[in-house]
Lab assay of single mutants.
Amino acid sequence: EVYKVKIKIERVLPNGEKVEEEITIEVEGMSEEELLALARELAAEPGVRIKEIEIEKLPP
């Protein structure tokens, strides 16, 4: 199964400015739980906050 994972994050820059970013990846052969863990890892940097995680199962 192939999933499209869209992660919206908010990053706080050293000057205090907040910037929103969106990361989209396609992943194959992982469960939804593994995808959530991967998304959290991607956003685990200091000053980064996850705003939204969207997981979509793509048709075969």
Rank of each mutant, 00 (worst) to 15 (best):
K4N: 07
I55C: 03
A37N: 12
A37E: 06
E56T: 14
T24D: 06
L38P: 01
E32V: 15
E32W: 08
I50H: 00
N15T: 12
G29R: 05
V12P: 02
A44T: 10
V2N: 15
L38N: 03
E1H: 10
P14E: 15
I25C: 03
R40Y: 14
A44G: 14
K57H: 05
E41M: 09
V27C: 04
E22V: 10
P46N: 14
E17Y: 08
E41W: 08
K18R: 11
E34L: 13
K57W: 15
K18N: 05
I25N: 01
E26F: 12
L35H: 03
L35S: 09
E41S: 12
L38H: 07
V2Y: 13
E32Q: 09
E45D: 09
V48K: 02
K51C: 04
P14S: 07
I25P: 00
E1I: 08
P60T: 11
G29E: 04
L36K: 07
E28K: 05
E32G: 06
E22M: 10
I53H: 00
P14Q: 05
L58R: 13
E28V: 06
K4Y: 08
A37L: 11
S31A: 04
A39T: 06
P60F: 00
P14N: 08
E33K: 06
V19D: 02
R40L: 15
L36R: 13
I25S: 02
N15V: 01
T24E: 10
I55R: 04
Y3K: 15
G16T: 01
E33L: 15
P60C: 04
E52A: 12
E52D: 15
Y3S: 15
K51D: 02
P14I: 08
E34P: 03
L36C: 05
E21G: 07
I9R: 02
E10L: 03
A39S: 06
K4S: 05
G29M: 07
E56D: 06
V2T: 11
V48S: 05
R40V: 12
R49D: 06
K57R: 05
R40A: 08
K4A: 07
R40Q: 11
K51V: 15
K8R: 10
I25L: 08
K8I: 12
I53W: 03
E10D: 04
T24V: 14
V27F: 10
P14K: 06
R49F: 04
E33T: 13
E10R: 02
E45F: 13
E1W: 15
E17P: 01
L36P: 03
V19E: 04
I9K: 01
P60L: 03
L35C: 05
L58M: 12
E32T: 13
A37H: 15
T24L: 11
V27E: 02
N15I: 01
A44S: 10
E34M: 09
E26T: 10
E21R: 09
E45I: 14
V48D: 02
P59V: 15
A37W: 05
S31W: 10
E21P: 01
E54D: 09
I7S: 00
P60K: 06
E1G: 10
E17Q: 14
A37Q: 13
I25R: 04
A44E: 05
K51I: 13
E28F: 05
L13H: 06
P60D: 09
K18I: 15
E21Q: 13
E34C: 04
S31C: 04
E17M: 12
I7Y: 02
K8Q: 03
R11C: 02
I9Y: 10
Y3N: 09
L35N: 01
E20A: 03
S31Y: 12
P46D: 05
E56P: 02
G16Q: 02
K51L: 13
E20D: 11
E45K: 15
E26M: 11
K8F: 09
K6G: 01
G16R: 02
E56I: 15
I25D: 00
E45W: 14
L38I: 13
N15S: 12
N15L: 02
E32L: 08
K18M: 15
L35D: 00
E45G: 13
V48F: 07
I23Q: 02
K6V: 08
E54L: 15
A44W: 14
I7T: 00
E33Q: 13
P46G: 09
I7C: 01
I25T: 02
E10V: 13
G29C: 03
E52C: 06
E33P: 05
R11F: 04
R49V: 10
R11T: 02
E1Q: 09
Y3D: 09
N15D: 11
I55G: 01
L58V: 07
I23F: 07
E17S: 14
N15R: 02
L36D: 06
E21K: 03
I50P: 00
R40I: 14
E21I: 13
R11W: 06
M30T: 03
A37D: 11
T24C: 05
Y3C: 05
I23M: 15
R11I: 04
K57Q: 10
E54F: 12
E20K: 05
P46Q: 13
I23V: 07
N15P: 01
E33D: 12
L13W: 05
P59Q: 11
E1M: 11
V27L: 11
I7W: 01
P59G: 13
E28R: 01
E20I: 12
P59R: 04
V2D: 09
E34I: 15
K18H: 13
V5A: 11
E1N: 08
E10I: 13
E52G: 09
L42T: 08
N15H: 03
E20T: 10
P14W: 04
E20W: 09
P59Y: 12
R49L: 09
L35E: 01
L58A: 09
E33R: 07
E52W: 15
L36Q: 08
E20M: 09
E22A: 05
V2I: 12
G29F: 07
K8C: 04
V2Q: 08
K18C: 08
I53E: 00
G16C: 05
I9A: 01
V5M: 14
P46V: 14
E10M: 06
I53F: 04
E54A: 11
G47M: 02
A43P: 02
E56L: 09
V5Q: 00
L35W: 08
G47D: 09
I53R: 00
P46S: 12
K6T: 07
I55P: 01
E20G: 03
R40D: 04
E56Y: 03
E22F: 06
N15Y: 03
V12W: 09
V5R: 00
P60E: 08
K51N: 06
G16M: 04
